[in-house]
Design a binder for these strands. Structure first.
Length: 482
RNA sequence: UCCUAAGUAGCUCAGCUGGUUAGAGCAUCUGACUGUUAAUCAGAGGGUCCCUGGUUCGAGCCCAGGCUUGGGAGCCA
């Protein structure tokens, strides 16, 4: 293959009147002369000027939106407005045709709903080009952040046999035949016959295994796919999503919150540094979209201001008990505008409550801590009961405007007896998690960690509003195409 | 899963009280033009009105069931 120059490099080049070759996909072909060419290396297109008088008719006909071409010629300063330079093509070669009657993308605005139906082709649009560049930057930044701090990237299993994690419905992994399932004498499915000799599922969290690693390696993180078979139909849930789960030995909730806040700020700053063009494009896209909304539903800050604001301000740290106090005395609660009124200590917060705290009251990311023990997982460290005898755990959730829960974490219960007691209360079978309890039996130590929903982070940074648009191939109920 | 709105040309959408041959803009095709920026101008083609059943002389429109999608809620990251 002839060596090609990337459009990104050409556009930043000042070395004109030299021969070069570019390859890319045609965005538009105007006036039988001007190709807007994109090769994915950057947001901008390069203009390729075709000498239509000296180009064969059959080549000209095949320069259509979506076609892949190679063009060779001289890089010159552009005669027209709108671009600094362009390539005066001596020759254009069609690499891959694109039938204009059938290619669904047009040089115009498409709805995100339509693009979701052609997820295999939506990469070709500016918007998704930008989204996946930002996603890539965030992903890399996460590894860099932890690597700089000496964390070990640990691969926790995707197939797990423990069904005691209690984090929701799981996808079963099996090789048993559906039509002739082996049964035990009592008529139940005989998983002894199954591939693993027991019931197995796709992971809903790498946390428990992560804790095992942290109790030897000190500081670990996982970053991998996670699966939930919940019938969730929202803009914030996927059946397959990516989660970052750090786990730190000799750390308490305070350290945990600091780590999470540092991580979020670090990766947001990284994306802003590395993807200025992409974020500018997405900011503009969002601004255009906001224009079509009624005034009272528009956000106060544009995308860049929102990201900057997040970097420049400390997250608000509030206990659950304080949050309940604020909500109880809030206007929407007193005027009974909440669908679920806040009355008693102990209830779980509804998303309208979280949104009020984040978007109206504090107007910035909020870390809620020390939730009632009754509404949180078994592995969270128990606090001493407060003056009123209320039991709380050392949990923390980080809530973001427009997103809701971005991070959920806790200091873990490292005291064996307290942990066993909690498991009993919550009917979690000890035998199944003997390996987890062993960490508390042998050299237990205070430790803490959290789970960060990667797609929710990408949502926040890109200003997109539907989680199905920030993962290349979204999986959700009734949808696993591509 | 619940509440709610929608499904009409490739895309975005209009379609009157149920009435003859279902429309527009963009896209596509043909021609013209040739320094264009979502090029422009002229013309043409293009429909399982989501599916199944029902009411009716007659259904894109009304009714029932279903499917899918958007938004909200729950579950959560």
């Amino acid at each position: 293959m002839i060596k090609r120059e990337k459009i990104k490099d050409i556009l930043s080049s000042t070395e004109f009147n030299r021969e070069t070759t570019v390859m890319g996909w045609v965005k538009t072909f105007r006036n039988n002369q001007f190709i807007a060419l994109n090769d994915g290396s950057c947001m901008s297109n390069l203009q390729v000027v075709v000498d239509f008088a000296n180009t064969p008719e059959e080549v000209l006909k095949k320069i259509t939106t979506g076609a892949a071409i190679s063009a060779s010629g001289k890089l010159v300063e552009s005669l027209g407005k709108g671009q600094k330079c362009e390539i005066k093509a001596d020759s254009v070669q069609i690499l891959g045709e694109s039938d204009p009657e059938k290619f669904p993308l047009q040089p115009k605005k498409h709805s995100l709903e339509f693009l979701r139906e052609i997820a295999h082709l939506r990469f070709r649009t500016n918007t998704f080009n930008a989204i996946f560049k930002v996603r890539n930057a965030l992903s890399f930044a996460i590894h860099q952040f932890f690597n700089e701090r000496g964390f070990v990237y640990l691969h926790t299993p995707i197939i797990t046999a423990s069904d005691a994690e209690g984090a929701g419905e799981m996808f079963r992994v099996t090789t048993l035949p559906f039509d002739d399932t082996p049964r035990t004498d009592s008529g139940e499915v005989d998983f002894k016959e199954d591939f693993f000799g027991r019931s197995a599922n796709l992971t809903v969290s790498g946390q428990l295994e992560g804790e095992l690693g942290a109790m030897a390696l000190g500081e670990i993180y996982t970053f991998g796919p996670t699966f939930r078979a919940e019938n969730s139909n929202t803009t914030r849930h996927l059946a397959e999503f990516w989660m970052i789960e750090p786990e730190v030995a000799f750390a308490d909730l305070e350290d945990n919150m600091n780590l999470a806040e540092d991580l979020l700020k670090y990766v947001i700053r990284y994306a802003m540094d590395k993807c200025p063009d992409e974020l500018a494009f997405l900011a503009n896209r969002l601004a255009e979209e906001e224009k079509s909304k009624p005034q009272n539903q528009r956000s106060e800050l544009d995308l860049m201001s929102k990201l900057n604001f997040c970097l420049e301000n400390d997250f608000e740290r509030v206990t659950y008990t304080e949050a309940i106090h604020i909500l109880k005395h809030s206007k929407p609660n007193q005027k009974k505008q909440f669908k679920y009124l806040v009355e008693d200590w102990g209830v779980d917060l509804q998303s309208e409550h979280e949104r009020y705290l984040v978007e109206k009251h504090f107007k910035k990311p909020v870390i809620l801590t020390d939730y009632p023990a009754d509404i949180k997982a078994f592995y969270m460290r128990m606090n001493e009961p407060d003056a009123d005898g209320r039991k709380t755990v050392r949990a923390m959730d980080i809530l973001f405007p427009g997103i809701g829960e971005m991070v959920g974490g806790s200091q873990r219960e490292e005291r064996l007896e307290k942990l066993q007691q909690r498991m009993q209360e919550m009917h979690i079978p000890e035998e199944e998690l003997y390996w987890y309890l062993d960490t508390r039996r042998f050299g237990s130590a205070p430790h803490a960690g959290f789970g960060l929903g990667f797609e929710r982070l990408v949502l926040f940074v890109t200003g997109m509003t539907n989680i199905r648009d920030v993962i290349p191939f979204p999986r959700f109920p009734k949808n696993a195409e591509f």
